[in-house]
Design a protein around this nucleic acid. Structure first.
Lengths: 303, 303
DNA sequence: GTCGACCGTTGCCTTTTTGGCAACGATATG
DNA sequence: CATATCGTTGCCAAAAAGGCAACGGTCGAC
């Protein structure tokens, strides 16, 4: 493989050897061939690259400059070919995932860990954000794979898998509501509510339910980070509105309890795996999408 | 002029246009030629650079990588050609001068100023040091031109011009010795002496004279910078041993007076212009050497 | 001094690479 | 269904690169 002009490679070897014939020998070509490449270079550049000594060639100032540049290019080339070598077989060197925060806590790390054993050379770029931003990134190609909540229909995006996530409330085990099997919106009236920022469940039915309900919640805090919401709830400051997936780890550790929200106006939120409609996924990304699909299906009965 | 493989140039244009035929049109070649270069690239790299859509080509992840690298290389190429263009006609973009400190005060700045009007694009690299270091730099090619004191004979160095610089003492105008027309070593016995560090006049006859003289000087300070020596003398702290060239500016301003040193053992120091023996000077450097020669001859009768 | 070794360079020829032209199959648009 | 546009391929001409042998020059050894 050879990305630079052969003349440049010849030049580098001549500069290294200080002699046309020695360079030609190492390059396994005739000295005349090397010579002509050098002469052609000098002619086209309009600058002598060597000064001719009786015992060989020595770099001119212009030649020094040229040599430094060529060496740089050769380093670049080596690194590029190395990376391309990694891509060969996997289709890409990096899979860029745009996702909601919920998955970055437990599901994704586990999955990426397994994936990394199969494709050790593939790196990841994780970006967490809200639905709007995720879809934008997938559409523009900034991300290969997107996972978002309640995406509006678009033809630029291909929706691959979808799972229903039940809304509910999470609270410290000592909280009065912790004993109920399920809670209604009205049960929460008497306790401070910890709510995600408006953008975080835009499009969900919970948004509308809260807006139209006659139940007046007493919001203690709004947060733009799930982590913060959970910490407040764990400290017993109130009931947190989120879905089961967000608190999977805390449930396992017994730090929080989760109770589904029972309300006729609140459907489950839809967690959706997607990619760009008109772009075909690199091989490794397609494999990862398969694993992600399976993982999402395992979260709840798919529809 | 074209330093990168034509295939890379084609690739860049195809990536830019998203279509073989459009790219071919802008490149003024047949679409088949462009196509073959792309196919050859992909074949040799073992990685698809584009995904084929019904309406054209779209970059694959590998292609994105490749494109970024090629763009970088094209920027490098433009800058390199620009610099080489500057070199064309002058022989170099930068003249590296290794010199004694004395010349950097007045002679060199003036000369380089004039030179810069003739060759506005040629830059300078000035390095001041002692004889030993200057010769080393010239010999190894780190400097194009050297100006040093009393160089020992070497065949690696070509000595171009040489001028005798009279040793003497400099002092404040109010100093008792300032009225003498010339001074002897013994006249200085009664005043603090400000001397350069040992290395600064190594090889000169003054060095030997001081060592063998029965006159015991009372050194006030040794300095490794001419500037410091002159400042001390200007402040009236003693008599400074140096040559006329070092104090040209102060003489003109009346801040110091200079009296030649009269001593049978002390010859004039030789200020020598030199370059590497086996290296030929770039055109601009040769021109500068001519000016320097003339300037040195003007300093004193040459020998 | 001559001789031999080594240097870059050039002319002539073959080999390899690249480009042009026309045609093919596939796909989206009217 | 016709049409336009796309990438692709076979065949041939043009251009570039390489190999070989020889020339003129300089340096070092004998």
């Amino acid at each position: 493989m050879q990305l630079l002009l052969t003349g440049l490679r010849y030049f580098e070897e001549v500069a290294r050897q200080g002699s046309l014939r020695k360079a030609a020998e190492r390059l396994h070509v005739a000295a005349s061939a090397v010579n002509r490449q050098i002469l052609k270079l000098e002619d086209e550049l309009g600058v002598p690259l060597f000064e001719r000594l009786p015992r060989g060639l020595r770099l001119s100032p212009a030649g020094e400059l040229m040599l430094a540049q060529i060496r740089q290019w050769q380093r670049d080339e080596r690194q590029l070919l190395e990376t391309l070598g990694d891509i060969r077989g996997t289709g890409c060197a990096e899979i860029r995932i745009a996702t909601v925060e919920s998955l970055t806590d437990q599901v994704l790390p586990e999955l990426l860990g397994q994936f990394s054993e199969r494709f050790p050379r593939v790196r990841f770029a994780l970006h967490t954000g809200l639905t709007e931003e995720i879809l934008e990134r997938v559409a523009t190609g900034e991300a290969d794979i997107g996972i978002c909540m309640n995406p509006p229909p678009t033809r630029r995006i291909r929706f691959i898998e979808s799972v229903a996530l039940q809304f509910g409330v999470a609270m410290a085990p000592s909280h009065p509501l912790a004993d109920a099997r399920e809670v209604r919106l009205s049960d929460c009236r008497d306790y401070p509510a910890i709510l995600p920022d408006a953008g975080m469940f835009r499009g969900s039915t919970l948004e509308r339910a809260l807006a139209t309900s006659d139940v007046e919640l007493t919001p203690l805090a709004g947060c733009n980070r799930i982590l913060a919401i959970k910490s407040l709830a764990r400290a017993g400051l109130g009931v947190a509105f989120l879905n089961a997936l967000d608190v999977a780890r805390e449930l396992a550790h017994g730090e929080l309890v989760f109770r589904p929200l029972r309300d006729p106006r609140v459907d489950a939120a839809r967690l959706v795996l997607c990619s760009a409609a008109e772009r075909s996924l690199p091989m490794a990304a397609a494999v990862l999408v398969e694993s992600l699909s399976q993982a999402l299906r395992d979260l709840a009965p798919h529809d």
